[in-house]
Amino acid sequence: MSLNVDRENTAFTFKGGMLPMTVMELSSANPEEVEAQLSGKVSQSPAFFQHTPVVLSVEKVDGPNLALERLCAICRSHKLLPVAVRGGGESAKQSAWALGLGWFPPVEARTHTLAPVPDAEPAVAEPVAAETLVAHGGRVYRGTVRSGQQISAPEGDLVVVGAVNAGAEILAAGSIHVYGPLRGRALAGIHGDTDVGVFCHELHAELLSVSGNYKRLEDIDPVLLGKAIQVYLEKDHLHIEAL
């Protein structure tokens, strides 16, 4: 019996979630420069700075003298809430934890573990390719994905043989292929992989996203609706193209 009879007795449940998150990619570790630029931004769009959670990406500025604490203080004084640090070495990780922030591995390292690039050695190319397939762990779903359902492939591609109805959500670390009408939301590259796409037989999607760049149904050229299409990312822009 799993009808959640004793729902009142559980204090919480853990759930996986994909939340939109602003990444503040630092290209300078100098607190004064960051401060100056932030002040300018606040006056441009004050609505954005309402305790918005941000992830500080320090990949480009990591070094022994990284003043993480100072940077966080500057963010907070401008009503940005640093919740985590991404990238950097061991010292960045330790100081993030000391500041009560989470730490994420750098983007390159993560995509690397997800999709190991075969070494340029032709002799071993074939076995490596076979390994890659296993490591990708894609998923094939047969049937209709219905409103309220969420189907995901946390590693690799997702193939749906059937319809994805309005109100349903499909997610994949890799590409998404729908052999049927796509009426719900499709999010490819959920771990930040940009070289992936969404492909479907009949486009009516509520939302299309590749690596966090998205388009809503309203933004989609009506000419493309009902067509077989592909969606891909090029220079940080989402392109939808008839197939």
Binding site: T144, R146, S147, G148, Q149, N165, A166, G167
Partner: peptide, 11 residues
């Protein structure tokens, strides 16, 4: 749409 949701629960 609501029926679609119910069908998901039935499954």
């Amino acid at each position: 749409r609501d029926s679609d949701r119910i069908l998901g629960l039935l499954g």
